[in-house]
């Protein structure tokens, strides 16, 4: 099986640890992922801010880089949702771009989908001795319907104490450029999410999306709360002998 890692521009640029964790985790499970070098950004920021032409150009680039693989693994619910939910609309009904999208879309998996549905693994042999809570993120939850896959994986992690997050399904207020255009509402939403996280008493907040974590983590950090944010992949990659870094 030829597997491509679509690492996403946010992870590539700001959170390389997450990308490394995915590569190592998959390797441990016997999958050698390829990193198609031509990939950059899925175009979600442009599409969702109203820059359709730019989004179409980036979508074209992305499917060109990703086609031909048997599976594309994306460690971001949001970017996976962009490819699966929005690319068909951007590509139209016919032509080479539409063909490429039709090829790539059914093979695109968010990381936990790939682990649970394709590899059929729920215990990835991880060890992470911490109290952890999980934020499902909107696009993971309502966009691509990850369901309880992430929780199933987390429950198998040795040493990990999973605590439920009250109001988990509520948006953290990130929303891409929403956080800038409607900064006050975004911050108010984030403050409520932060309060919910702190109420759990967790040491670590994890999610399948670093952009939401960057948003929540930014406020947790500003408040000197001591709660760390970590992408789910980094927890799943951790073992008794080796952390990620």
């Amino acid at each position: 099986m030829r597997v491509a890692l679509f690492v996403t521009c946010v992870n590539d640029t700001l959170f390389p640890d997450t990308g490394r964790a995915v590569v190592r985790l998959l390797r441990r499970l016997g999958v050698e992922a390829d990193f198609p070098r031509a990939q950059t950004c899925c175009g979600q920021m442009h599409a969702n801010t109203g820059y359709r032409d730019e989004a179409v150009r980036l979508a074209r680039r992305s499917v060109a880089a990703l086609r031909g693989y048997d599976a594309v693994v994306v460690p971001s619910g949001s970017c996976a949702a962009m490819i699966r939910e929005q690319y068909p609309g951007l590509a139209g009904s016919s032509g080479p771009f539409a063909d490429a999208v039709a090829q790539v879309v059914p093979k695109t998996y968010e990381l936990t989908e790939f682990l649970v549905d394709v590899l059929g693994v729920t215990d990835v042999g991880a060890y992470f001795p911490h109290r952890v809570t999980y934020h499902p993120t909107c696009h993971s939850l309502r966009g691509i319907h990850l369901g309880d896959r992430p929780l199933t994986l987390l429950r198998q992690v040795k040493g990990l104490e999973l605590v439920p997050l009250p109001g988990a399904e509520e948006c953290c207020g990130f929303g891409g450029t929403f956080a800038l255009k409607n900064a006050d509402v975004s911050a108010a939403m984030c403050a409520d999410k932060v309060r919910a996280v702190l109420d759990t008493g967790a040491e670590v907040l994890c999610a399948a999306d670093n952009s939401c974590l960057m948003h929540i983590g930014g406020m947790l950090g500003r408040q000197r709360s001591g709660v760390r944010v970590t992408h789910l992949a980094e927890i799943l990659c951790s073992t008794e002998t080796a952390g990620v870094r």
Binding site: T13, L180, M214, G218
Partner: peptide, 16 residues
């Protein structure tokens, strides 16, 4: 609007 209430993530030394 971001940095009024949130810290920015640290930029890593090396990209993925």
């Amino acid at each position: 609007g971001w940095t009024d209430t949130r810290d920015l993530p640290e930029v890593p030394k090396e990209s993925f």
